[in-house]
Every structure is written in structure tokens, then in C-alpha cells.
């Protein structure tokens, strides 16, 4: 464990807490893409299959449970909770994310570290996470104005993977045979997708103005 990875995990946890706060405090999920939440739930379920078979550390196990539990709770909330689901931007959240799932699964079958079921699913979860934010970014551009908590949620979600890239660079130089090229390339793509959001987020922070994404 290094400071980049720990900070990255805490940033990821913070993004989930901000999202839970928004949904709980405002009883609304306006501006949040249900499709991105479903993709993230799938990412965690596919990646953390080794939760009970491969114990790494208490921290690792606890965080996996928190990520799986929170992502499923958010999807449940947005689908079932009568107050919350009323505020869901159904007509804006129309990105066909099933294509993302199919494409990432095909890619995982072709490009993986070992052609074994757990490894293919792990690669699938890495590729899927890289593109899982697309429905959310599309929704933000369509919905124009972004409320503070939603903006912070997306910012933290993008920042955590950028910190993981620093973690991979650090591990590459400090561990003899460290190679995570699949996660690295996918992580770079994932972070690059946030580039324009980061730019407008920075502008809104610098000008102390409302976060506006050009539609």
C-alpha cells in the first residue's frame, strides 16, 4: 500500500459518500445517471468475486464490501425508492450502456492477463469501469446546470483513478516485477474521459461560478 493508492481509495470512498449524502439529504437523484450506477455495481461484482476466496487484508475486504453494498444500495434507491426515483432524469439518461457491457466483455475475452474465468472477469471489470462514467458525463451535458453535490461526486470519481495512475507509476519503480498494463491503459482512458469535466470544474471553482457544461 502506498500513499497514492490509499488517497485514491479514500477519494473513491468520498465520492460514494457524497453521492449517498446527496440522495439521502435531498431525497433526489436528479443529475445522477442510473446507468452509470448500474455499470459500477457490475464492475464491483465482476472484480470482487475473489472476496471470499482470496483474503488480502482486512482493509481490502472491508472496502470491497462497502463498494459492493453502496453501489447496489444506490441502484436499488434509484429504482425502487418512490421519492428518489421520481427525480430520476429518465428522459435524459438514455445512453445505451448495454453496448458498453458487450464491448468490454468481448475485449476482455481477447485481451486479458490469463485466459481463465476470474482473469477474464477482472479484465472485463477494468475495461467496464473505464467507460462506465460515459452515461453520467452525457447526462451532465444534457442537463446543463449541475448541482454542487453532483459536481463534487463526479470530480472525486474522476480524481480517484488519476491517483491510481500515480500509484501504478510508484509501484512500477519500487517493485521489481510489477506490471499492471491492462489496468494502467484503462485507467489512463478513464481519467482522460474526465478531462473536459475537470476543465469546467476548475473554471467554476476559479470563477466561483456555477458549474456549467456546454451542451
Amino acid at each position: 500500500m502506498n500513499v497514492f493508492r490509499l488517497t485514491g481509495d479514500m477519494t473513491h470512498l468520498a465520492s460514494i459518500l457524497v453521492l449517498l449524502l446527496k440522495i439521502y439529504a435531498t431525497k433526489s437523484c436528479s443529475g445522477i445517471s442510473l446507468k452509470t450506477q448500474e455499470l459500477y455495481a457490475l464492475v464491483f461484482l465482476a472484480r470482487y468475486l475473489n472476496l471470499f476466496t482470496d483474503f488480502i487484508s482486512v482493509y481490502n475486504t472491508v472496502m470491497k464490501l462497502v463498494f459492493i453494498g453502496s453501489s447496489l444500495a444506490i441502484v436499488w434507491c434509484m429504482r425502487m425508492h418512490k421519492m428518489v426515483k421520481r427525480s430520476y432524469d429518465q428522459e435524459l439518461d438514455t445512453f445505451r450502456h448495454y453496448f458498453l457491457i458487450a464491448g468490454c466483455f468481448l475485449l476482455a475475452l481477447l485481451v486479458n492477463e490469463k485466459f481463465m474465468f476470474p482473469e477474464v472477469l477482472w479484465a472485463f471489470s477494468i475495461y467496464l469501469e473505464a467507460v462506465s462514467t460515459i452515461p453520467q458525463l452525457v447526462l451532465l451535458q444534457r442537463s446543463g446546470n449541475v448541482d454542487n453535490l453532483t459536481g463534487q461526486y463526479v470530480f472525486l470519481l474522476g480524481a480517484y483513478r488519476a491517483l491510481y495512475i500515480l500509484n501504478w507509476i510508484y509501484r512500477y519503480f519500487t517493485e521489481p516485477h510489477f506490471s499492471r498494463w491492462i489496468a494502467c491503459v484503462a485507467g489512463l482512458v478513464q481519467t482522460a474521459l474526465y478531462a473536459d469535466f475537470f476543465y469546467y470544474y476548475f473554471l467554476s471553482w476559479k470563477n466561483n461560478a456555477k458549474l456549467q457544461l456546454p451542451s
Binding site: R5, D9, H12, R47, N50, D54, I56, N60, M63, K64, F67, E113, W122, Y164, N167, E175, P176, H177, F178, S179, R180, A183
Partner: peptide
């Protein structure tokens, strides 16, 4: 699996 191959990251 060898330490480095295990997926020890979240």
C-alpha cells in the same frame, strides 16, 4: 499466485 500477480488493488 505470485504476490505481484494477485489483484491486491481495489
Amino acid at each position: 499466485a505470485e504476490e505481484s500477480e494477485r489483484h491486491d488493488e481495489l
